[in-house]
Design a protein around this nucleic acid. Structure first.
Length: 424
RNA sequence: GGAGAGAUGGGUGAGUGGCUUAAACCAGCAGUUUGCUAAACUGCCGUAUGGGUAACUGUACCGGGGGUUCGAAUCCCCCUCUCUCCGCCA
């Protein structure tokens, strides 16, 4: 959510920047500015009236104490019209404030200066790539066949227990899953992140804090009886730790890493391109989150990109890093790098991580601020997060890329975690 | 799930309708003094929003939301959470 001050001061700049995201902001901004103006008018009027009211009330108190009863009564008469005036202004203020907020949250975050215009994945810019794409024989199998062949992930069993998109990991499949989670967490801790294990259900306030609510309600599972939501990503609980918090500058950057299961309703299509592990309702993910000083947040972003890169290259997966164009970026992001790994049997790139700087956009919603030592003024922090990493597509790529006649080879860095170097 | 007690600033904690401009203490910050791993003293010490170049200043906020009243931290209603006891339970 953009700050009202920025909208007030840099209207034209915002309109220009949002064109990069293919967003026409002028109409909304004009509406916001008009609402903001009447909000301030009403507020300063009520302030004055309240001030009168407070003064008179205090005087009445004094009169009563001194026994000047008739004077007190006539002063009391005077307050009635004041009180009514205040009430009618208050009644006007509430809907204006609500509408103002509703309009402001419709504005996407401003893209960083380096973001290029564009309408989709075709306009994304390849930053760099790494790893070696394996040459597989024509007989190579996609992962949905491999998991059946080696009996390591069972979709049908998941359908029996819950429904489509809730796989059961079995035997070496389950062990591989656990190994990846441990590997990702350990690497995060080595890189200076603090490991967190948050709740996987959150309340409405948290859903609002990171922007899932009120708009994207349908994307989360709702635990109706208690009003909780199953988290779509650890970003939600971990970032909300800092909701309504004022940090000191020397606490920044805050670096947290968390593993959680993630739940996504994703009511959309379930065609061939989302077969197997490509899209699930429940999956495992390790997430990294940073709360950074505004002046250092892009350094944090680079650091996070390098960290994720070390994970995919550690797993010996062919990958590329894309800097997203305006049209392909999320509503809340200022700059996003996507990581894709090559899935050799599907013969396509799979998105496995998205690393973003949200600048102060999330922080404004969260009311997460910091103070410089000795400074009276609070400022909004910058928040960043990234997957490090989401498991299913990593598993898909490992299975497909490493298939041999005699089984599936496990990347060397995982062997200490799995205890086996081959799935047979 | 049942019964009772609570929720006040960074912390402890006073405050049952106007003498509160939320006391006091602790922590923190700045300074003075004495001198040496510290003590004493003085001052400052919440957030948001409006006005002002600024000094300063208006307003709101005592878990959240409504209400009563000229006036609410204080009284009433609803909600959330915490603690104690009982019940249930990995």
């Amino acid at each position: 959510m953009l700050t009202i001050n920025l909208i007030r001061e840099k209207k034209e700049f915002i309109i220009e920047r949002l064109k990069i995201k293919n967003f026409e902001a002028e109409e909304i901004i004009n509406k916001i500015l008009a609402l903001d103006l009447s909000r301030r008018e009403i507020q300063s009027k009520t302030g004055l009236l309240q001030s009168d009211m407070n003064r008179i009330s205090k005087e009445i108190g004094g009169m009563i104490k001194e026994g000047r009863k008739s004077e007190a009564d006539s002063a009391r008469e005077k307050t009635y019209s004041l009180k009514e005036e205040i009430k009618s202004l208050d009644d006007k203020l509430m809907p204006i404030e609500n509408e103002l907020r509703n309009e402001i949250i419709r504005l996407p975050n401003l893209p960083h200066i380096s973001v290029v215009p564009g309408y989709g994945a075709d306009n994304n810019i390849k930053v760099r790539e790494g790893g070696i794409i394996p040459a597989l024989p024509d007989s190579a199998l996609p992962h949905w066949d491999l998991i059946k062949k080696y009996d390591i992930i069972d979709f049908d069993l998941g359908i029996k227990l819950t429904g489509a998109g809730f796989p059961v990991y079995k035997g070496k499949g389950a062990k591989l899953e656990r190994a990846l989670i441990s590997f990702f967490l350990d690497e995060g801790v080595k890189a200076g992140y603090t490991e967190m294990m948050p709740p996987i259900m959150v309340n409405e306030d948290s859903g609002f804090g990171t922007g899932q609510l009120p708009d994207k309600e349908g994307q989360m599972y709702n635990v109706g009886l208690d009003g909780f939501y199953l988290i779509p990503t650890a970003e939600v609980p971990v970032t909300n730790i800092y909701r309504d918090v004022i940090l000191t500058a020397d606490q920044l950057p805050v670096k947290n890493v968390a593993y959680t299961p993630c739940f996504r309703r994703e009511a959309g299509s379930w065609g061939a391109h989302v077969r197997g592990l490509n899209r699930l309702h429940q999956f495992d993910k390790v997430e990294i989150v940073q709360i950074a000083h505004p002046e250092n947040s892009y350094r944090s972003l680079e650091e996070m990109v390098n960290h994720v890169e070390s994970l995919v290259s550690g797993l010996e997966l062919p990958y590329r890093i894309m800097r997203l164009c305006g049209g392909d970026m999320s509503f809340t992001s200022a700059l996003t790098y996507d990581f894709e790994v090559w899935s050799a049997a599907q013969k396509r790139w799979l998105e496995v991580s998205s690393v973003s700087n949200f600048e102060s956009f999330q922080a404004n919603r969260l009311k997460c601020r910091f103070k410089e030592k000795g400074d009276k003024q609070t400022r909004l922090v910058h928040t960043l997060n990234g997957s490090a990493l989401a498991l299913p597509r990593i598993v898909a790529a490992i299975l497909e890329n490493n298939q041999k006649d005699n089984g599936i080879r496990i990347p060397a860095v995982l062997v200490p975690y799995t205890g086996f170097d081959k799935i047979t």
